[in-house]
Design a protein around this nucleic acid. Structure first.
Lengths: 101, 101
DNA sequence: CGTGTAAGGAATTCTGACACG
DNA sequence: CGTGTAAGGAATTCTGACACG
């Protein structure tokens, strides 16, 4: 599966290499609620490949001058839209089953 | 794509958590030529998810009492077989194109 | 607001070696 | 052969803070 994409196994140093963002920036975007690394028992942050993809999107937005605030709102809206789409899909499937009864 | 699977971004501590193998064992299997982590400039080992899958296979074999030697031979044979299969596939494709000329 | 930096501590990783077997 | 361990050093990561703006 693509579950590897979501597994939180990458340390901040590697994320820095992969994204070009400083550790300071990476931690700050977490503080802003844009990414959510997992923590090991000892407090070390672990990121997934999807986190890295998100960080690259953030970096692009930031270069355009978009504030973390805006970026967060955009992310939430995108999520909301995909949730709605999923729900409509479920609705179609249900009506399909209802028709068959 | 599944290129994430092959990206060498995981440190040995995480590999230990994911496989249950000790760092000593993980490094030893590298010495035996069974896995090939990448090295950062400073010498830290980085593993991919495929490396982890390989390590889990190794662990299974070792539990059955198979020596690293045997395991390596098995891996090489498996590789050889898949290379041959690939070559035969290429042969078929070529003959297909030749027929059309 | 977003990011750099110096500070000090705690945990990580590395290598080469001795040990047991 | 395969793995544990203690040893010492080097690099990593973390937090809270001061700085600039």
């Amino acid at each position: 599966m693509d579950s590897y994409k979501h597994k939180k196994v990458i340390t901040i140093g590697i994320v820095n290499e992969l994204t070009g963002l400083s550790e300071r920036q990476i931690r700050y975007y977490e503080e802003c609620g844009l990414i959510f690394p997992k923590r090991s028992k000892l407090g070390t942050r672990h990121y997934s490949f999807t986190d890295i993809e998100t960080l690259i999107q953030i970096a692009d937005k930031r270069e355009e001058g978009v504030q973390t605030n805006e970026i967060k709102r955009d992310f939430n809206n995108k999520k909301k839209r995909s949730d709605i789409r999923d729900e409509m899909l479920r609705g179609q499937i249900n009506s399909h089953f209802n028709r068959r009864r």
